[in-house]
Nucleic acid binder design. Structure first.
Lengths: 211, 211
DNA sequence: TTTGATTTATTAACACTGTTAATTATATTT
DNA sequence: AAATATAATTAACAGTGTTAATAAATCAAA
């Protein structure tokens, strides 16, 4: 069978094969629904084989979270061409938000769930490379803004945390369905889909006033 | 036995008894660890008895989430005595944050998890009374600030969403351990416990500039 | 008071979950 | 070819939420 041939072929990088299968199921049904047994069935292996390549499910979640950062990082890196620092910061916010909406499951793994960080905390490194890299990108964006006259009186690191918090709060509330439940049946004029966009624009307007 | 006597005594409001047991376990071990079976064991009933009083685990989560809003609402209502609107808003933020830190499990149930909202979405009401009430409190606080000269150019509802997002983002990132992982090993000077406080103060400073 | 109906609680079971120990099959090396 | 090391599997443990069928307790009517 062609399936078995491909199986033999990829037997060496089974770890990657497992991850691909996990990714596929995860993007279709979410993290909770992606069980070890289903991943194993997907690649036609026994469930316990997974444990020869990944310590536990948390380690798989960590690998998936890294995949998510690859996507986000790639999408953010494009924005470095934007010269104007505030426009760049604005675009970063837009991309971050769009990523959260389009890849909700990834976002959850990257910024909401504890499991992936648990793996990091075990592995002695104890430092979150992906997260810190993303944060440095935001920080440098904000420092560039400061050089252009924005947020002069603010400590850049702390201010970056505020900005990140706002964006994360917005995305998290939207993803988990809490935003809709508060604005629904009130603002009948604007459809629910654009509440997020509108709130983001207000945040930008707010930042714009802080020069 | 005294236990059995009390059992008989409370048999009519078994629903409340179940909730109390759930609350107790939940506050000790968190939501995931609080299984139907453990709740049943706590009150010395069969696991299936729970289902005579609650449709499913999500419905219990919803009841617990309501308990959380009772605590938060009570803590926030005290602040209404503060005359100065901006000071009141600031205090609201402080209380919200302290609640999130002290009652992390409740906070998760109220603003992060989907399960409690799921129950609402089923129950035809389709409107989140607790959440909307809390939001109205924030909204009125911000409107009071506007009358005092703050945030004049902003739409109060949308601006409230921004403020809520920032506070939620901050609390959520802290609760899930993402905040520490970004600032750790960088700012060695300030201990990790006060990063949150410091970021909050910067946010307040930011709001203060928007008059 | 005893029978019958109704409510309440229980047992047993289903279909899952992550994870581990013991065992078999497959490669690799001597 | 035999011995060793690696890889994969089966069986099992200890849980999970949830449902159907059964038993116990309560209450109403004869």
């Amino acid at each position: 069978m062609g399936i078995q041939e491909r199986k033999r072929k990829h037997k060496e990088d089974l770890k990657q094969l497992i991850l691909d299968a996990a990714k596929k199921l995860f993007m279709k049904d979410g993290y909770e629904a992606t069980s070890i047994r289903k991943i194993a069935a997907e690649i036609e292996f026994s469930p316990t084989t997974i444990y020869l390549y990944y310590k536990d499910k948390a380690e798989i979640s960590h690998a998936l979270h890294q995949e998510g950062f690859k996507i986000l990082g790639q999408q953010l890196s494009i924005l470095l061409v934007i010269e104007d620092p505030f426009e760049r910061l604005k675009a970063m916010g837009k991309v971050y938000m769009q990523f959260a909406l389009e890849h909700g499951d990834f976002y959850e793994l990257m910024f909401i769930m504890k499991d992936p960080l648990q793996t990091i905390h075990d592995c002695a490194d104890n430092h979150w490379e992906e997260g810190q890299q993303a944060f440095r990108l935001l920080l440098s964006g904000i420092q560039a803004c400061q050089e252009a006259g924005y947020f002069r009186s603010m400590d850049p690191e702390t201010f970056s945390l505020v900005v990140w918090s706002t964006m994360h709060g917005l995305c998290a509330l939207q993803l988990k369905g809490h935003l809709d439940m508060v604005v629904a049946h009130k603002n009948i004029l604007q459809d629910v889909d654009n509440v997020l966009q509108h709130t983001f624009e207000t945040f930008i307007k707010m930042l714009e006033k802080l020069r």
